[in-house]
Structure formats: C-alpha cells, structure tokens
C-alpha cells in the first residue's frame, strides 16, 4: 500500500457531517483559504480528517489571523513518538502559499489547539 492510498483512506474517514471540503482537489481558489487537519495514532489507529474552505474575505482574514499566530517554525518532533498518543498534521493552502506542520498531541496547545478545534467545529 502506498502513501497515496493511505491518504485516500484518510479522506474517506472525513466524510461525516455537512462537508465543506471538496475531495480530490487540495487547491484553494484565488483569495480563498483551505485548512485541513488529519489525526493519526491513538490506540484505535483510526485516521479522521477535518477540512474547511473559506472564501469570504472577512472570514479569510479571521482564519488567517489564527493561522499566523501558530508556531510554524517550531522544531519538528523527532523520530519515535509516544505510545498511542495522537499526532496532528495541519495544512494551510492558499493560492500562492502552502504550509504544513506535524504536531504531537502533547504540543497541541495555545493557537494550535484553537486552530484544530475551530477546523473541527467548522467541518461538522
């Protein structure tokens, strides 16, 4: 099985509630913002996935303000995680800019926690 298949499976897990995300395309249209959060690990080994697409300018500004407050430049976690803890992968896609971060559950606090909670709420 490849990474891509794994990712596709993750995508399947996401389809609960009114989906704001569009499957099959990660790109955000001009002026828009797309944020995805996927969670792996946990004793169950499930990989749920949440996503939000924002197009209204005032909404984009509000989301971006939260995005910019996150510590994107913090050092990445080393090899070997903690047993059964979650790891979050957070991606922010804009038409000309893309960034991602892998955040272990123990480091998910402050703005990271706010961002993940807001994406989860928005994708319900």
């Amino acid at each position: 099985m490849t990474d891509q298949q794994q990712d596709d499976r993750d995508g399947d897990v996401a389809d609960r509630g009114p989906a704001l995300h569009e499957r099959g395309s990660d790109a955000a249209p001009r002026g828009a913002l797309r944020i995805t959060v996927s969670r792996t690990g946990g004793v169950a080994g499930l990989a749920p996935h949440w996503s939000v697409m924002v197009t209204e300018e005032k909404d984009v500004d509000s989301w971006l303000s939260l995005v910019e407050s996150c510590p994107w430049d913090a050092p990445a976690p080393g090899i070997g995680g903690e047993p059964d803890r979650f790891v979050y992968t957070i991606r922010v896609l804009q038409p000309d800019h893309e960034r991602d971060a892998r955040v272990p559950e123990r480091a998910l606090d402050g703005p990271w926690a706010d961002l993940v909670a807001r994406v989860k709420d928005a994708s319900r």
Partner: peptide
C-alpha cells in the same frame, strides 16, 4: 500488505 506511510509514526497501528 506492509504499509509505508509517514502517518502514525510509520503505520505502527497498521
């Protein structure tokens, strides 16, 4: 069926 992935610390639960 071994799964190569970066997720889940390299698919440890898979």
């Amino acid at each position: 069926g071994y799964v190569q992935t970066r997720d889940d610390n390299g698919g440890v639960h898979l």
